[in-house]
Design a protein around this nucleic acid. Structure first.
Lengths: 347, 347
DNA sequence: ATGAAAGCGCTAACAG
DNA sequence: CTGTTAGCGCTTTCAT
């Protein structure tokens, strides 16, 4: 067997040039005689050379790797909990879209995401260590809870990081978000336009800014139309939570004729419960969701939903991080996207 | 501002020892005087030292990183396609469980997964390059199609890799799998025990071994019971595919009284279609799924399903890869898990 | 435009 | 048990 994987040295020898020249060719630096460049390329081909990234990283002090961390607030860290967390996270179509957008930005730049879960203090420590060791150049953080301590830790440590969604308490980090308030208004106006006069809403967790803002926008638009005291129940952003919330809502207000659920999963839960009770959607109760994720189209009836451009947002999040990493951007920046109503069958 | 991040040298100076000693302490090598170890630990604390992984990787020739690649057979690579692929992949609860299991093994060893999608020839090239550059020590591959060329490429290149599920054509790589045939038998026997006498099945893609084997097991058990010519339609492992397949099945055999769907997503599609047609599950038609993923419990009615221990399988996959990487295992090995029937409401 | 040489921060013989 | 030393493979001045 020959020696290990070939190095720059080997290619240089094969091409009859210096290591420096090969390095220049590999990295596409100009200042290289086209003829030589050809020779070097041939030598690379012949030797089957692949640059050692550890060596490169050591000198350029970059990994071309970013941490993609899904972060909660848990304080436990046993395997079952993590399994369950991972399964739940990945079942929510929202994360798939985030991953898609992130990869869409990173891949053309041959950057790659390392997947991390931060559900406990240990996990968070691990994320910081990971970054401080230079195993990743920065972090993309998707928090599942408002009180997630990770963003603040990252900011304190001066590590490059960008958040998906505005954190509950201000943190000096860039973030992307959708205009949740505008989304709530869109939902309200659509229900009004349909002729609903007893609308209600199943909200997300109210300690999360997305939950609060969607509710606020919904109420504001209704108030403008003269409707106050709109009933609402918190649904926790899950399918089961949506159904339970609708159950509670129905118990107190059997006559609701329109429901805005703050995400599609809950909207589906709402539809299910309504149907179980013999109600028809949208004839008896119109339902509007939020996200326009895969479940919106798959739900029966297909959900009318406030679309959040998650892929674009995730892409932008990656772009911001890249700029922070290269030092092209230093100030925390917020990029806010406009929601859009997608009309289907449920309202 | 002080200098950059502290190095071994800085810690050594602070502790009044040599770099080697600090290195030994950091890496937990014995042979170190407990008193000195204390001093070094203190110095690490004081300086806020975090070992530079690129430097370490350069010499130990390991990254403690593995590629987790979801691999199809596509030949396109535009952004929208990838977005859609990522979204679809992550919507399938199956992958969440895989990720959970993989992370469960890796994390305690401070190893980490880099997420990659391989949907085109370019993507596959990228995966190989990634590994050859030493950016990851090996690959965990989850193929979505039988004809996925990636496993063979990996094997040819002599790169450490382990597959989830047996590849359609033999490849000299380790893999984990569930006994799909036994799973099919379990489903058949359950339907028979319930008194079904006109069973049918919605299969997975028949070019995938999981699809073929589940069908084979189902048929075999039915044949033993004297039932031959069991109707089947291919459903593509998706929700919509399951519904369509059931539709086709019903058109040809309106009297089926039991259906085995080769995964839960399709089983849910089957239930939906049945319900749309006014049929009741399980009273008119009993439905058995496969996987016992999150949707099984969430489906109405809750699905009786053949459980695949995905988390444990994924964990084992990571363990095998780790052994291959450290050279403790050289021969390709297959680890096959037993399925188990979980009885709920649908059958 | 090209080459020589000095590290990047760490580990691992090898002495002592 | 501890220190000295020689690289790991690459990039990057600095000369030429």
């Amino acid at each position: 067997m020959g020696r290990q994987t070939p190095t720059l040295e080997d290619v240089a020898r094969e091409a009859g040039v210096s290591r420096a020249t090969v390095s220049r060719v590999v990295n596409g630096v100009r200042n290289v005689d086209p003829a030589l460049r050809e020779i070097v390329h041939r030598a690379i081909e012949v030797t089957g050379y692949a640059p050692n990234r550890a060596a490169r990283s050591l000198v350029i002090r970059r990994t071309e790797t970013v941490a993609l961390v899904v972060s909660g607030v848990g304080d436990v860290a046993d395997d079952d909990t993590r399994d369950a967390f991972a399964a739940r996270v990945f079942t929510d179509p929202f994360f798939g879209r985030v991953v898609g957008g992130v990869v869409g930005f990173l891949r053309p730049r041959s950057m790659h995401p390392v997947l991390m879960f931060a559900e406990s203090a240990d996990d968070r420590r691990e994320v910081l260590t990971f970054l401080r060791q230079g195993r990743a150049d920065g972090a993309l953080v998707v928090s599942t809870h408002a009180d997630d301590p990770l963003p603040a830790l990252l900011a304190e440590a001066g590590l490059p990081a960008v958040l998906f969604a505005r954190p509950a308490r201000p943190v000096p980090l860039s973030h992307v978000d959708v205009d949740n308030r505008a989304g709530g208004r869109l939902a309200a106006r659509h229900l009004l336009a349909r002729g609903c006069c007893r609308p209600a809403t199943v909200t997300g967790p109210l300690d999360v800014s997305a939950g609060r803002e969607r509710l606020a926008g919904f109420r504001a638009a209704l108030t403008e139309a003269g409707l106050t005291d709109v009933p609402f129940v918190e649904g926790g952003f899950t399918l089961a939570g949506g159904a339970e919330a609708m159950d509670a809502l129905l118990a107190r207000h059997p006559d609701v004729d329109g429901v805005f659920a703050a995400n599609d999963l809950m909207a589906e839960g709402v539809c299910r419960l309504l149907q179980e009770r013999g109600g028809r959607v949208p004839d008896d109760v119109a339902v509007v969701g939020f996200d326009d994720s895969g479940v919106a189209a798959a739900c029966r009836p297909a959900l009318t939903s406030v679309r959040q451009p998650v892929e674009r947002m995730a892409q932008e999040m990656a772009r911001l991080l890249d700029e922070h990493i290269r030092g092209e951007r230093t100030e925390p920046t917020a990029v806010v996207f406009d929601p859009e109503l997608v009309t289907r069958d449920s309202a």
